[in-house]
Amino acid sequence: MNVAAVVLALLSALGNGAASVLQRRAAMDQVREERGARGPKQNLLRLTRLLRRPYWLAGLAAMVVSAVAQVGALAVGRLSVVQPLLVSELLFTLVVGSLVFRHRPDGRTWLSFVTLAAGLALFLVAADPSHGQNTAQNGEWLPVGVAVAIVVGILIAVARMLRGAARAATLGCATAACFACTAALIKEFTGRFSGGVAEVFTDWPLYAVCAVGLLSFLLLQSTLRAGTLAASQPALTLGDALVSVTLGWVLFGERVELGLRVLPEVAGILLMAAGIVGLTRSPAMCGGWDQAVPGHPDLAARNAGKPRPPLPGRRGHPGGGGTP
Results as ranks from 00 to 15, higher is better:
1 M>I: 08
3 V>A: 06
8 L>Q: 06
9 A>H: 00
10 L>I: 01
15 G>Q: 10
15 G>V: 09
18 A>Y: 12
19 A>S: 15
22 L>Y: 15
24 R>Q: 04
24 R>N: 02
26 A>W: 06
37 A>L: 07
43 N>W: 13
48 T>C: 09
50 L>F: 06
50 L>K: 04
52 R>Y: 13
58 A>H: 03
61 A>E: 01
63 M>R: 13
69 A>V: 14
73 A>N: 09
78 R>S: 15
79 L>R: 10
82 V>T: 12
84 P>Q: 13
89 E>T: 06
90 L>W: 15
93 T>V: 14
93 T>R: 14
99 L>C: 04
99 L>V: 15
103 H>N: 07
103 H>Y: 12
107 G>M: 02
110 W>N: 10
112 S>R: 07
112 S>W: 01
117 A>I: 01
118 A>K: 06
118 A>H: 06
119 G>E: 02
119 G>P: 03
127 A>C: 07
140 E>G: 00
142 L>A: 04
144 V>S: 04
144 V>F: 07
156 I>S: 04
160 R>S: 08
161 M>S: 13
170 T>R: 07
173 C>D: 10
175 T>V: 02
176 A>T: 00
185 L>F: 00
187 K>C: 05
189 F>Q: 12
191 G>Y: 03
194 S>W: 07
199 E>D: 14
201 F>P: 07
204 W>F: 06
207 Y>K: 10
209 V>S: 00
211 A>Y: 01
213 G>T: 08
219 L>K: 05
224 L>M: 10
226 A>D: 04
228 T>S: 15
233 Q>T: 14
234 P>Q: 01
238 L>I: 11
257 E>V: 12
263 L>S: 05
264 P>K: 08
267 A>L: 11
272 M>N: 01
276 I>D: 02
278 G>D: 13
280 T>H: 05
283 P>L: 10
288 G>C: 06
295 G>A: 11
295 G>W: 12
301 A>Q: 15
301 A>M: 11
308 R>H: 04
312 P>I: 07
312 P>Y: 07
312 P>K: 10
319 G>K: 00
319 G>N: 07
322 G>Y: 02
